[in-house]
Measured scan of single mutants.
Amino acid sequence: MISLIAALAVDRVIGMENAMPWNLPADLAWFKRNTLNKPVIMGRHTWESIGRPLPGRKNIILSSQPGTDDRVTWVKSVDEAIAACGDVPEIMVIGGGRVYEQFLPKAQKLYLTHIDAEVEGDTHFPDYEPDDWESVFSEFHDADAQNSHSYCFEILERR
């Protein structure tokens, strides 16, 4: 099963200049909980913004210009990325925008964090048809001392 995991502000903004323009430790914990011990696929820009392999996960970098870091697996196509994951129950696609666009048609599940923030962004989550998805989990949280904005975790499964 292919799943996408993303944090989205208003207007589906997911990033600005290779960074997330908010401070939500709870979302980072949600991300870790849902990706640990699963292969993660990301684009080169996302890889560069993280700066290191995510521990406890097979890191697969999709790029037309593969790098030389041998701590991760470099691939040039969506099919190659899927094959590099091996026989696993769930593959997690973690961004960025172009990689989400490439995998959305193949995805069966979306793990979304909806952030109540209007922020400037240069990267967006692809538009998706809500009628194609069923919400199977939703959990709202107010902003607090650690988390700069209110947010809602949601899991959607393709109908």
Rank of each mutant, 00 (worst) to 15 (best):
F153R: 03
T123Y: 01
D132W: 10
F137Y: 03
H45E: 02
Q65D: 09
N59T: 09
L4F: 15
S138W: 06
E154C: 15
V93F: 03
M92P: 04
D11R: 14
E17Q: 01
E134G: 12
K38M: 08
V75H: 07
T46C: 05
I82R: 08
E101W: 12
M92N: 13
V10E: 07
P130C: 15
T73N: 05
E154R: 15
T68A: 11
M42A: 04
A84R: 05
D70F: 08
K58P: 07
V40M: 09
I50S: 00
A19G: 12
M92R: 01
D11H: 02
V78G: 14
Y128S: 07
E101V: 06
A81F: 03
A29L: 08
W30M: 15
S77I: 14
F103G: 06
A6V: 08
R158E: 06
F125P: 02
S3R: 00
A84I: 08
E80I: 07
G51Y: 07
Y151R: 11
S138P: 06
W74I: 08
S49Y: 01
Q102D: 07
I5C: 01
I5N: 01
H124I: 10
V119G: 04
S63I: 04
V40R: 00
D144W: 07
P39F: 12
P25H: 04
D132H: 08
D79T: 10
S49E: 03
L24Q: 13
P105G: 09
F137L: 12
G121A: 01
F31V: 04
N23M: 10
F140K: 13
S49P: 01
S150W: 11
N147C: 04
D142I: 07
A26E: 02
K58W: 05
V72S: 11
E139D: 06
Q65S: 10
A6F: 14
K76V: 11
T73S: 09
P53C: 04
K106A: 09
E157R: 09
P53R: 09
S63W: 05
A143G: 06
L110I: 11
G67P: 14
T123R: 11
E90Q: 04
P105H: 06
V75Y: 06
D87W: 09
P55I: 07
R44T: 09
R159P: 14
A6Y: 14
S77N: 10
L4E: 00
